[in-house]
Computed example of a mutant assay.
Amino acid sequence: MNHLLHLYLVDPHPECRLGALFGDYVKGPLDQRLPDGIRHGIMHHRRLDSFAETSVVFRRSRKRLNPALRHCRGILVDMAYDHFLAQNWETYHHQPLEDFATSIYRLLQHHQSTLPKRLQASLPRMLAANWLVALRHIEHIDSVLHRLASRLSRPNLLATGKAEILRNRHGLEADFTAFMVECRHRFQSPPSRHLMQSR
């Protein structure tokens, strides 16, 4: 669920950014008919998710949260990290978050017919609520967590996530800063040559 972090770390080629967003909706073997950049973005998304599972910092964040949240702790950390990234965006990116978000929305609208069905369905809400910029606000995080809680098949405490983030904010934000150092070293690199040539 950490769309902003995936978009920040992926190759800035438009297809790669699309793939970074597709990653939450495309499972299993990749369709080789997909453009190279989209496949690159999906694989980048999967590598980042796998890294988070093994990261000492990410695991520390999960342990800070109420154990009763169980499997939802990872979702909550994802959302908290996106919240902190949005709030501190100017530290990490030269482009204002509002402009970056607008470019992503235009990209999604331009490719709307090719988006995964669930992403297509979410797009109007994303545009109306300006999701990427709204991540700065804890009330937006709260509404997302309530919506996710209602969609999960198992009983869960995800709707209590806002209180958990606020209760552990200092520690979680310190973890986020350390996680960003790890991720920028491991994942953020200049655009790949063959993708640059296709621009």
Results as ranks from 00 to 15, higher is better:
75 I>N: 11
76 L>D: 05
46 R>H: 00
83 H>I: 04
86 A>I: 07
60 R>K: 15
52 A>H: 11
52 A>Q: 10
47 R>Y: 07
79 M>I: 12
49 D>V: 04
49 D>F: 04
84 F>W: 03
82 D>W: 05
49 D>T: 12
78 D>S: 09
64 R>K: 15
68 A>V: 13
60 R>D: 12
62 R>K: 14
60 R>C: 01
82 D>K: 01
73 R>F: 04
48 L>W: 01
46 R>V: 03
81 Y>C: 01
49 D>C: 06
56 V>C: 01
63 K>W: 08
49 D>P: 05
70 R>E: 14
85 L>I: 06
79 M>E: 00
81 Y>V: 00
63 K>I: 06
86 A>N: 04
67 P>V: 05
86 A>T: 09
54 T>H: 05
61 S>R: 04
54 T>I: 15
71 H>T: 09
80 A>K: 04
69 L>H: 12
66 N>D: 15
58 F>E: 11
55 S>P: 14
85 L>G: 02
52 A>M: 14
44 H>I: 07
65 L>G: 10
68 A>C: 07
85 L>V: 13
79 M>C: 11
82 D>S: 00
76 L>S: 08
50 S>D: 14
86 A>E: 10
53 E>Y: 01
73 R>Q: 08
87 Q>S: 09
73 R>L: 05
48 L>R: 06
75 I>K: 11
63 K>G: 12
46 R>N: 10
45 H>A: 03
86 A>D: 08
80 A>P: 01
71 H>Y: 12
70 R>K: 15
72 C>K: 11
44 H>Q: 10
64 R>D: 13
49 D>A: 07
62 R>F: 08
66 N>L: 06
74 G>T: 01
59 R>M: 15
59 R>W: 12
67 P>L: 04
47 R>A: 06
54 T>C: 07
47 R>H: 13
87 Q>K: 12
60 R>P: 01
59 R>N: 15
75 I>Q: 04
54 T>Y: 05
74 G>K: 05
73 R>V: 07
72 C>Q: 11
67 P>F: 04
85 L>Y: 06
53 E>H: 02
67 P>Y: 09
61 S>T: 09
52 A>R: 02
51 F>H: 08
45 H>C: 00
62 R>Y: 02
86 A>P: 10
55 S>N: 07
62 R>N: 09
